[in-house]
């Protein structure tokens, strides 16, 4: 297989994953209500999906209220109404609304709520509860994160690692990665490599961080963590080279990024610079 075929295949793969994530959170098909002859909900659904108004604007929030008034079971309207509160730090209001969406349609919104608890609030225990409930509903695949970066079982593992259960986190990740038909997402190997490192399996860390680079060589992070492992192994030249590469990548903009929050295992320029100054006198 040629290199261009491989890269085309990778692009198709990424497109499919992104599409899956989009499908999971797409707007509802209002015609279902029409087919059920439920005209109040059909009209409410059309209003909620096409009624206009910028996200978080008065017009938009009032539109969802009208839709909910007309069809109290319209989970989509509760979910969409909740989003601006989440993004703007009003988590009390967000939770009330997203809970209602989950109550009305757990299969569709549990994964999203769990992801938001992890991403915006570092509510690891709360997120685990949502993901484990989802496991009982969809034992084979609990779906993907809203931003399309993760399969949610991997996020569940990250939550376990954050509450100190790193062994369990590794086990969950390895099981997921070993599942037939599962293709690793872009940050899976990075996280597993870091977890291996943190639990003292330095060679395992090198293996997975190297795999991360092979999958996606547009990140400073795997080089940074590789550098830390080389430092622990007293491999001075490799330590320095890895940190230099991490810095070069960081300055090129090759780094973990999320417009809303700080992703787990993200590194910063000050982290890299600190290691580089240690490497000079190592």
């Amino acid at each position: 297989m040629t290199k261009s075929m491989l890269s085309a295949g990778r692009l198709v793969f990424v497109f499919l994953l992104t599409s899956l994530a989009l499908v999971a959170y797409a707007e509802p098909n209002c015609n279902i209500y029409k087919m059920e002859n439920n005209m109040p909900c059909y009209e409410a659904c059309v209003l909620a999906t096409t009624g206009g108004g910028e996200q978080g604007s008065r017009k938009s929030q009032e539109k969802f209220d009208k839709a909910i008034e007309q069809c109290p079971a319209l989970d989509y309207a509760y979910m969409e109404k909740s989003v601006p509160y989440l993004k703007r730090g009003d988590f009390v209001t967000w939770k009330k609304l997203i809970d209602k969406a989950v109550e009305l349609n757990p299969t569709l919104h549990l994964g999203y709520r769990g992801w938001c608890r992890y991403q915006f609030l570092r509510d690891y225990k709360g997120a685990i509860k949502d993901f484990e409930r989802l496991d009982t509903l969809f034992p084979h695949d609990i779906g993907y994160s809203q931003n399309g970066d993760y399969q949610l079982t991997i996020v569940k593992a990250l939550c376990y690692s954050a509450i100190g259960e790193k062994g369990k986190a590794i086990e969950i990740m390895e099981t997921q990665l070993g599942k037939k038909g599962y293709s690793p997402m872009v940050y899976d190997y990075l996280h597993l490599g870091v977890l291996k490192m943190e639990t003292g399996d330095l060679n395992g860390g090198i293996d997975f961080l190297t795999k991360s680079i092979a999958l996606n060589d547009y990140l400073a992070e795997p080089y940074y963590y590789l550098g830390l492992i080389y430092k622990s192994k007293n491999l001075k030249a490799e330590y320095k080279t890895a940190m230099e590469k991490a810095k070069a990548y960081y300055l090129k903009g090759y780094k973990r990024f999320d417009p809303y929050t700080h992703p787990m295992h993200k590194v910063y320029l000050s982290d890299i610079d600190r290691e580089l100054s240690i490497a000079q006198t190592f």
Partner: peptide
């Protein structure tokens, strides 16, 4: 009369 400001937040 609206319970909402021009924009949430």
């Amino acid at each position: 009369k609206s319970v909402y400001p021009n924009h949430v937040g």
